[in-house]
Design a protein around this nucleic acid. Sequence first.
DNA 1: GATCCGTGGCA
DNA 2: TTGCCAAGGAT
Length: 286
Amino acid sequence: MSALHDPVLDWYAAHARDLPWREPSASPWSVLVSELMLQQTPVARVLPVHTQWLERWPTPAHLAAEPSGEAVRAWGRLGYPRRALRLHAAAAAIVERYDGEVPDSYDELLTLPGVGDYTAAAVASFAFGRRHVVLDTNVRRVLGRVLAGREFPPTSVTRAEREEATEVLPDDEATAATWAVAVMELGALVCTAASPRCEDCPVREQCAWRAAGYPAYDGPPRRGQAWQGTDRQCRGRLMAVLRDSDGPVHRSRLDVAWPDADQRERCLASLSQDGLIMRKGDTFRL
DNA sequence: GATCCGTGGCA
DNA sequence: TTGCCAAGGAT
């Protein structure tokens, strides 16, 4: 029994946010939808979209029955719209292979589009109470600081990280599931990336990073993501035009959205290749 | 393992 | 003002 468990679990019981996908009545589908939406996207932005999504498509079958373009439009401005496509494809796979029920095992979840190691472990843990190592950016940062004394975790998950996370995972299945979400919440609310609130941390007395005097990150420089003039910006502009239009959009309206013709054509081709847009003659639509 | 893939709030 | 970055996945 790690000395970290009780302080973190008690802290979570007192400070956890009330989120729709954490309600006792929340379905596994609600949890899966939330996890796809939360990939690289803040909770505050996900909340309203998740609510509307579940009202419109309360089960995987409801979503699978509609064209993927409807999912992309309902995704709104969450970003990375390919996730909407993957969620739609996941719903279809759940209907076809799992009789419309979100599977409850890590291995089965991992076969779904858009579900990788993190999401499979998270859904198995949060929705079904299974015991899994759930390694997201929050958990990695918390454990990296408390156990390894480093401000930020390595670029990619190392074997040492996974072993440490496995060692501190509670043995009891139900406790492990709560632990997983509790450590994640601690990272989201207290042990944050920019300005951690260490004075509010339940495990500050056991934190290796704190004990070492908060040494600054000394690893390889983390590359920022370029934006201005990139294909990502171009694709975003084009998608915004199509998303805000009901029917097909004539090419001329996309010309205005992105003046550089070569880049615009390249992005239209890649969006089409991704399945995010459909082309018919001189018009495009979701 | 390195890259690519959106968006908008914030220090 | 602008770089940073927020519950990753696919290739």
